[in-house]
Amino acid sequence: MTAIEVTPPVLARSRARVGDSVFRWWTWLMAALLVVIMLLLVYELIIGAELALNEFGTGFLSGSSWDPVADRYGAWPAIFGTVVSSLLALAVAGPLGLLAAIFLAEIAPRWLESPLSFLIELLASVPSVVYGLWGLYVMVPVMRDPIQTWLSTHLGSLPVFACQPLGIGMMSAVAILSIMILPYGISVSRDVLRAVPNEQREAMLALGATRWETIWRVVVPFARSGIIGGLLLALGRAVGETMAVTMLIGNRAQVSGCLFSPAYTLSSQIANEFTEAVSPMHISALMELGLVLFAITLVLNGAARLLVWRITRGNPVGR
């Protein structure tokens, strides 16, 4: 073979190589920055909460008294409020959202479904503080009278309704949270329902099932994982919701079995007290509340992601 010397365009290639590595290095740096931010966030949270962590230990989670004067703090009322308000909101918005999603995915004709979906998604575009405003001046008065007054008069013997109807309190917070998380539950459920293969529906219909029976016995079970994932996502949002809850929940650090009573959530307590907290211990306790909140959402979102991710890979059953 004749040797043909080909002088490679060394200069041009090395310039390109430099450009390539600089670019790659820069984008890598940006990606690494994201990792750093995340780690920094956890770090700062823990450092900020350190004072309270060392002082109260695990007793912080169960302590019921929140006393800035004596500088003693317990997170239980806030944890209780967060858990109860979010679960109740899910109990309302979950089933309602699933039914609405079924309507959008299975029943509504295309010309109706598109604008409806759009309107429902708009619910997610309204800022939290606007929900709070509306809740405070439109919903709460109606809540107090006639709703809570009626409940108090007729069902006041039940412990759940056995306190003074104020309008403001756990019940109003649950109501506004339900409205706020509805669009999240609906859109995830609608998407996973739509993804169910049509042949499943056909098989059930061909056996002589009604539309509802097909949906309930075949389509929904097929999409089960994704629906639960969507519900967990909605729950995660409810847990993290701050402004509307702060404006409607009454902001009192107490645990009560009555739905009308004022309460606290982790996020609303932080929002309410942070700017007025003076003692370092108080501030640190509030930051520890933030840490607890962070941990809860971490777990919830992790579980949600796992389930939704599974369904989008085509695996219908959560095995």
């Binding site: 920094l40 933030g290 909140l293």
Partner: peptide, 10 residues
């Protein structure tokens, strides 16, 4: 998924 108020603390 981190709540906005926690980011505020950060």
């Amino acid at each position: 998924g981190v709540p906005s108020i926690v980011i505020g603390i950060f």
